[in-house]
Design a binder for these strands. Sequence first.
RNA 1: GGAGUCGGCCAGGCAGUCGCGGCGCAUUAUUGUGCCGAGGAAAGUCCGGGCUCCGCAGGGCAGGGUGCCAGGUAACGCCUGGGAGGCGUGAGCCUACGGAAAGUGCCACAGAAAAAAUACCGCCUAAGCAUCUUCGGAUGCCGGUAAGGGUGAAAAGGUGCGGUAAGAGCGCACCGCGCGGGUGGCAACAUGCCGCGGCACGGUAAACCCCACCCGGAGCAAGACCAAAUAGGGGGGCAGGCGGCCUUGUGCCGCAGCGCGCGGCCCGCGCGUGUCCCCGGGUAGGUUGCUUGAGGCGCAUGGCGACAUGCGACCCAGAUGAAUGGCUGCCCACGACAGAACCCGGCUUAACGGCCGGCUCCCACU
Length: 191
Amino acid sequence: MPAISGAASGSRARSDTSGLNNETHLPTKQPSSQPDPRLSGPYGDQERPSSSEPAPAQRPGAALPVKTENDSCRPAGFPRSYRLRNANQFRAVFNEARRASDQNFTLLGRCNDKNHARLGLAISVKSAGGAVCRNRVKRAARESFRLLGGDISSVDVVVMARRGIDKKTSAQMRASLDKLFRSISRKCAKS
RNA sequence: GGAGUCGGCCAGGCAGUCGCGGCGCAUUAUUGUGCCGAGGAAAGUCCGGGCUCCGCAGGGCAGGGUGCCAGGUAACGCCUGGGAGGCGUGAGCCUACGGAAAGUGCCACAGAAAAAAUACCGCCUAAGCAUCUUCGGAUGCCGGUAAGGGUGAAAAGGUGCGGUAAGAGCGCACCGCGCGGGUGGCAACAUGCCGCGGCACGGUAAACCCCACCCGGAGCAAGACCAAAUAGGGGGGCAGGCGGCCUUGUGCCGCAGCGCGCGGCCCGCGCGUGUCCCCGGGUAGGUUGCUUGAGGCGCAUGGCGACAUGCGACCCAGAUGAAUGGCUGCCCACGACAGAACCCGGCUUAACGGCCGGCUCCCACU
């Protein structure tokens, strides 16, 4: 049962993404017809590929170049290995840190032996003025770090928020963070 | 149409693109792909449970909680229905709503008197005493009085008639109140019923207290498992010069040896004893607990209802330095309060707005 449904959903997915280019109303219909494959498995499998027959020829050509462009511009992912994961790693940064700060944030940085930067967040609920704002700050920091990508040299960075951060817009945070990430990266690279 | 009231629901939408967490599948050690991914309060942590560990014969005391009645529930301080009292024209809403003849305390100020009360003003009286007298009487004391005034949150039923020196449940009628009975109701309670009593010994129990019922403690950083490095603990194997002692041993003691320290050196003194293996405790770290549940949804049945029972299909966050987002475009009513951390049931607090339904009042029209 799981194997069949998996194969069915895989083929259906291919038709989804290809269909988007041609017909805009198709994806809105899709959720309503979802239970179909489960109830009548064999029939659903037959119908799907036939309806979206011309699509597969277009797709590989259109999709792949976009992806390679993204990879060359920026390694924009943010996997676990790019984060500080435990207390020892944080302590190491706090003990011998170079700092960069403005009115919004304080960043602590320390060279690491990896070939990429790592990010740690030390933002208290108290300084952010509530859990919702704290999440907003953390997301801004991650996003800024992610989009800068390879522009930051191989340092471990801890981001700390300063009081009054809850009054700032997300755009203000991002601008501030972008500058500080570059700054801390430069300072650590020199030493 | 306007105003109000009660209940339920929603919490910007759509598309593209770049990302994040979990699970499945494929590939395989890196990716691809599909599905899912915050709330009505996730909050405050104020109650009640589940779960976990610790404690525990039984009973009592202390301490805490609850407090009209009946039902619902795993349980509750919650919910439903009912009663009583209060507010509102009404729909409706509000109530910490057991006991004040078990006892103790308190009732400020004002007031004459604050609880089996009291005579300040007033009213009445002329028997007695005193003074005055125009000899009619007047005034004071003594005495009667709770109708009137004044004080207070509260002054010991109300109205009327009789009654009286003036008055008074002193008597009577009606109203009110209390007690007993009957009747209705499971009960709280009600009572156009019957009888009795002239009629309350006020209030306060979020004052002590009394009565009834309930309550062991700590919490997922609970608890369980795996377990590096370092130091230390226990056991064993191998290596170990000389002497002594006996309990004859894998023993103990001393000396020598080696290393380190004191010292310029010797003597001397102090400290320590090699290597390998195993065991258990345990730290960092990791795994688990961790999401299928008193689960929501639909239908049927029972019930006024909270809810219960049966059947059907469904899987709907599970992170752990902590995911649920960024950017772009379009639309509109221009988007409040706010972010899961073991899980449920409530309560409380926060908050921009919208939708649906029941009911009430007012206005207009037919």
